[in-house]
Design a protein around this nucleic acid. Structure first.
Length: 282
DNA sequence: GAATATTCCTGAATGC
DNA sequence: TGCATTCAGGAATATT
């Protein structure tokens, strides 16, 4: 499932290929989900706009768009154009294709570009979300929580010290940190040597700082490897990532810990499958 | 107000 | 073989 590294990989891929391109025509499916803004309004809003930049905010892919009719504005002008915001949910994919590529099942959006290419969004489970914002009427999109790659030690401690819930549950709360999902919560806790059920507020400052650094390290490593392909994740070109080969605990229930050979445990925490090593994590 | 449970949804895996 | 059941989970919403 797409978390920060996968979303970052896709955003970079789309940015590389489509920056400066123009949306000629937009087609949207008729399902109720995954549209946050009604599909007809998104299609109308997107057509005619140029793609100025594509970047990641939390687990969201944000396409920065020009004003509607030509005149691509400079990025620094901000607040004049529009944004197309893509959240991949569990099974969402955003792919750059050619028009003759057969339409995959569960395709919910198809943007035809001036270059002749297409940007397609598919999502079998429809947990993803597509949103359109006209910046002349709405504020720009911003993530609810801090970014795990840039959060400072003081900010991190301030977010987690007052919480009375398992640290694993706190890491998944997007209002605290934006971008951490089940895979990287488990992997960062393993690398920090902290058991997932421990209460956030009971961790020492040193443990919290170790966790912040482990989280940043694991996310940066995963980005370098193009993310984790555990179910069906692929980047903007349909290429799988490789970080799943580096997983120490996630989906390794019963397998020997890579560090101490103790079988990896799986428990349910905050409604999520949670994996850890009872020997390495205290 | 914070923490936890429920809900959405489909494909893959499992059971009979 | 094939149909029915179970399970996974991000995040909004509902409940405790």
């Amino acid at each position: 499932m797409p978390e920060l590294p996968e979303v970052e990989t896709i955003a970079r891929g789309v940015q590389e290929r489509l920056r400066g391109d123009r949306i000629v025509e937009a087609w949207f499916g008729s399902h109720r989900e995954p549209f946050k803004t009604p599909p007809a309004r998104q299609a109308k809003g997107l057509e005619g706009r140029a793609i100025l930049a594509v970047h990641r905010t939390g687990k969201h892919i944000v396409c920065e768009l020009s004003t509607a009719y030509g005149n691509p504005i400079v990025e620094s002008a901000g607040g004049i154009g529009a944004q197309w915001i893509v959240h991949l949910g569990m099974t969402g994919r955003l792919l750059v294709t050619t028009p003759d590529t057969p339409l995959a099942a569960h395709t919910h959006a198809r943007l035809s570009l001036a270059s002749g290419r297409e940007l397609r969004f598919m999502d079998p489970r429809r947990f993803g979300r597509l949103d359109f914002r006209d910046l002349s009427r709405n504020p720009a999109f911003s993530a609810a929580g801090a970014d795990p790659l840039t959060v400072t030690a003081a900010e991190f401690a301030a977010l987690f010290r007052p919480r009375k819930l398992p640290i694993k549950a706190a890491l998944l709360n997007q209002k605290l940190l934006s971008g951490v999902g089940n895979i990287y919560a488990d992997e960062s806790l393993f690398r920090a040597g902290i058991r997932p059920p421990r209460l956030s507020g009971r961790l020492t400052r040193a443990e919290l700082e170790g966790l912040r650094l482990a989280l940043r390290e694991v996310l940066e490593h995963a980005i370098r490897l193009g993310g984790s392909s555990v179910s069906d994740y692929v980047d903007a070109d349909g290429v799988r990532g490789f970080f799943q080969l580096e997983h120490c605990v996630y989906m390794r229930t019963g397998l020997p810990c890579r560090r101490c050979q103790t079988p990896i445990q799986r428990i349910l925490l905050a409604g999520r499958g949670t994996h850890y090593c009872s020997q390495c994590q205290r």
